[in-house]
């Protein structure tokens, strides 16, 4: 008897034997409201301009194939830069060469006339800059002069500067280590003098 009752109850369950997608009823009100809003917008447009109402709303613009399929890959703490200046190869080289040249200047004890390797590096930098076209040159100028007031010092606390982390996000560990080794060498040479 109990079994029959249970079966009867189960058969009376309005859900039997069908199923609905998970969360269907929770989202139904929102779906209906969305439809109502869409209808309101359509009715309004129909009143204002039957011509526009008849036009297709399909976007004529194109996007690269698979653009919306790319996985989202934002790091958990600090985000990768959107447009990194360092992704331009010529800037990487120009900036790296400038940094090395500046370091050598310091190392040479603020020499008035650079000689030897320093001179060669400066010549290379000049050649690089001469090879830049007008647009690249103006971008480099923009980069070099961005935010500079002439009062800046060379001391930067990388740990405290999230902006620097972002700027250096796509510079490889190896490049950073090489740069640090060079800086340490220059600093220790200056200290010993």
């Amino acid at each position: 008897m109990t079994d029959r009752q249970t079966i009867n109850n189960e058969l009376k369950d309005p859900r039997m034997p069908y199923s609905v997608p998970l969360g269907y009823f929770e989202g139904l009100a929102e779906q209906v409201l969305t439809r109502i809003r869409q209808e309101e917008a359509k009715e309004e447009l129909g009143t204002l301009s039957p011509l526009l109402q008849q036009l297709s709303k399909k976007q004529p613009y194109s996007t690269p194939v698979g653009y919306f399929d790319f996985p989202v890959n934002l790091p958990a703490s600090e985000q990768a830069p959107v447009r990194s200046l360092f992704s331009r190869t010529w800037i990487r080289y120009a900036v790296a060469a400038s940094v090395i040249a500046a370091g050598i200047f310091l190392w040479m004890g603020r020499a008035e006339q650079p000689t030897g390797n320093a001179k060669n590096v400066i010549i290379e930098v000049k050649q690089d800059i001469q090879q830049l076209n007008e647009k690249e040159e103006s971008l480099l100028q923009e980069f070099v002069s961005a935010g500079m007031t002439g009062q800046e010092t060379a001391q930067i606390d990388i740990q405290e500067r999230a902006a620097d982390k972002t700027l250096l996000a796509d510079v490889s560990e190896q490049e950073l280590n090489e740069f640090l080794e060079q800086s340490e060498f220059i600093t220790s040479t200056e200290t010993n003098e």
Binding site: L55, P60, Y61, S62
Partner: peptide, 12 residues
Amino acid sequence: AEQYFDADKAEW
């Protein structure tokens, strides 16, 4: 300047 621009098409 868009790739598929067509001045005769209503959507453009």
